[in-house]
Design a protein around this nucleic acid. Structure first.
Lengths: 148, 148
DNA sequence: GTCGCTGCAAAACGTTTGCATTTAG
DNA sequence: CTAAATGCAAACGTTTTGCAGCGAC
């Protein structure tokens, strides 16, 4: 139950599909609806499971291609956390965050730090780079796991 | 020609192998020597090519397993830059750096910023985490590519 | 001589694509 | 009707492993 305006996301997707001349199909609506209502970082398998709970006729490739579509439209971020699996996350507008990951229990905490953002922007500029995006992941052991 | 004490790295590897009861073989010595003399971020294929220039009998699996050994011993870092390929880098002691990557020409600039390090340490602590390692990658367009 | 290591080839793994069929527009 | 989307299965690229023979100790 994310606190999120899924209607807005849906209409942005429709706009994108209109613009690109893509068709609105039952599968795309199902996959994108399920995705927009999800929290966290979902693999294709995760999505397939959720989607098949509603319609088990949906194929892996369709989920894969719809997630790609969502990524291309800017409505999903694709993440890689070191295991070989791609994960997808709803790209809430304006919101941005990095990740703090527990190496023991795999808990993922999201964070944002304006000061770090500012410093990395400055750093990129000082090396002549125009910064487009970044990946900042902190790996450690969370308080719960240390307590055990 | 990295400015690096390869003898030290070699002896640390020998220590590790002794401790673990592993054997010193011609292939392991060759692969690790080539690796320690290398700069940058090498894929298994890169390493295989360099190694086979000296002894073309060496198999892919041996390079793979030796790189894994180097990673386990703490003498190599494994990196993932988003294409599906694992890359390895010599883990010089004390030295640490993050990466600034040009999205156009794939140039990789290494950086280190103590202030960012300090902030991320504080941030992890404030979330109850004991920080073990981190990944900080900045993607953008370098000056050369923007000039074109 | 033992048991770990090598090289090969094959398996595994997640991702991506070709194609015949279905379906939105 | 037409072209795009689907589902399947197969292709892909990379990583990982089983195993027979080889070699360090």
């Amino acid at each position: 139950m994310p606190n999120r305006n899924t209607e807005d996301l849906k209409s942005r997707l429709v706009e994108y599909m209109d613009r690109e001349g893509l068709r609105s199909t039952a599968q795309r609506r199902l996959v994108s609806d399920v995705f927009f209502k999800s929290v966290g970082h979902l693999s294709i398998e995760d999505m397939l499971e959720k989607v098949r709970a509603i319609d088990q006729g949906v194929g892996y490739a369709t989920v894969y291609r719809t997630l790609k579509l969502l990524k291309d439209s800017g409505l999903a971020f694709e993440r890689h956390f070191g295991d070989g699996v791609s994960r997808y996350e709803v790209a809430d507008e304006g919101e941005h965050h990095d990740h703090l990951i527990c190496q023991t229990c795999s808990k993922i905490v999201e964070f944002e730090d304006d000061e770090i953002e500012r410093l990395q922007e400055a750093l990129a500029r000082s090396h002549g780079f125009e910064l487009r995006r970044h990946k900042h992941e902190l790996y450690g052991i969370c308080a719960d796991c240390r307590a055990k």
